[in-house]
C-alpha cells in the first residue's frame, strides 16, 4: 500500500510539487502583513540590495548629465546678469560724469544717446535720439565730455544725423592753445586728424592742446578738440603738418551733447 502511494507520488511528482508551490505561494500571499514575513522580506531585500546599485549608478550618471546641463544654463544666466550689472555700473559712471559736465557748462545743451553708427560709406556719422522736437537743427555742434564730436547734418522729429570728425569731408577751424596758431583741421587716417600749412617758423610741440577757434557759426570758441601728437615738415619744407589725436573716442562714443545755443 505504502509502495503504491510512493509510486503514485513519484509518477505525479510534478503535480504534487506544483500544488505544494501554489499552496506555499498562497500562504505567503495571505500572510503578507505578518511580522515574520515582513522581516524575511526585509532581510531578502537587504541581501539583494546590491542588485539595485547598477540602476542607481546609471540613474545617478544621467542625473549628473542633467544637473550639468542645468548648471551650465544657470552659469550663463548669471554671466549675463553680471554683464548687465557691469554695463549698468559703467553707464552709471558715464552718466555721473555727464551730469557734472552739464552743471558746469554755460551753453544751452541737449543730452543725447547714440543710437547707431551710420552705414553710409561716404559719410562717417552717428544717429542720435534727439531731433526737431528737442529743438535740434542742422549745423549744431555735437560734443562729448572729452571734446568735439561733430555737427548735426540733418534732423528728423526725434533723431538727428551727426557728421563725425573722422569723416573725410569734415573741416574744423581750430587753434593751438599755447602757440595760438590757427588752422583748418581735417581727418588724416586711422585715429588721427591733421592741420596742414602751418608755417615752419611757428613752434608747435607734441602735447599741445587743440581747441576750436571760434571763427565759425557752429562751434563756440575754446571747445577741446584734441592734442598734438607729432609735428612733421611738409614736402615743400616751408610749412609743417601737425598730427592731432582727438580727445573724443569717436569709435566708442555713446552719449553726446548738442549745443543749441552759445
Amino acid at each position: 500500500m505504502f509502495v503504491r502511494i510512493l509510486n503514485f507520488i513519484y509518477k505525479n511528482h510534478e503535480y504534487f510539487v506544483f500544488a505544494l508551490l501554489i499552496i506555499l505561494s498562497i500562504i505567503i500571499l495571505m500572510t503578507n502583513d505578518a511580522a515574520p514575513i515582513r522581516k524575511i522580506q526585509g532581510k531578502v531585500a537587504d541581501f539583494f540590495y546590491f542588485l539595485h546599485y547598477p540602476r542607481l549608478w546609471i540613474n545617478e550618471l544621467s542625473d549628473i548629465v542633467e544637473e550639468n546641463r542645468q548648471l551650465k544654463r544657470e552659469n550663463l544666466r548669471l554671466k549675463l546678469l553680471n554683464w548687465e550689472m557691469l554695463e549698468a555700473y559703467e553707464e552709471n559712471k558715464r552718466l555721473r560724469k555727464l551730469l557734472g559736465f552739464m552743471k558746469n557748462t554755460t551753453y544751452d545743451i541737449v543730452p543725447a544717446k547714440v543710437l547707431n553708427r551710420g552705414v553710409t560709406p561716404v559719410l562717417s556719422s552717428i544717429l542720435i535720439n534727439v531731433g526737431e522736437k528737442q529743438g535740434i537743427r542742422a549745423n549744431m555742434a555735437v560734443i562729448s565730455v572729452s571734446g568735439v564730436v561733430g555737427k548735426v547734418v540733418s534732423s528728423g522729429e526725434n533723431t538727428s544725423i551727426v557728421q563725425v570728425l573722422d569723416d573725410v569731408n569734415f573741416r574744423l577751424s581750430v587753434r593751438f592753445q599755447t602757440s595760438r596758431v590757427l588752422g583748418i583741421m581735417k581727418w588724416r587716417s586711422g585715429e588721427f586728424a591733421e592741420v596742414r600749412n602751418i608755417p615752419s617758423s611757428l613752434n608747435i610741440y607734441p602735447g599741445e592742446k587743440v581747441i576750436t577757434s571760434g571763427f565759425s557759426d557752429i562751434f563756440p570758441k575754446g571747445l577741446l578738440v584734441g592734442e598734438v601728437v607729432e609735428v612733421i615738415p611738409s614736402e615743400d619744407k616751408i610749412s609743417q603738418v601737425a598730427i592731432i589725436r582727438p580727445f573724443a573716442n569717436l569709435k566708442k562714443i555713446e552719449e553726446v551733447f548738442v549745443i543749441r545755443k552759445f
Binding site: I27, I28, Q41, L51
Partner: peptide
C-alpha cells in the same frame, strides 16, 4: 522580495 514585484508571493 526585492520590491520589484508587488505582494510577497504574488
Amino acid at each position: 522580495a526585492i520590491g520589484v514585484g508587488s505582494y510577497l508571493g504574488l
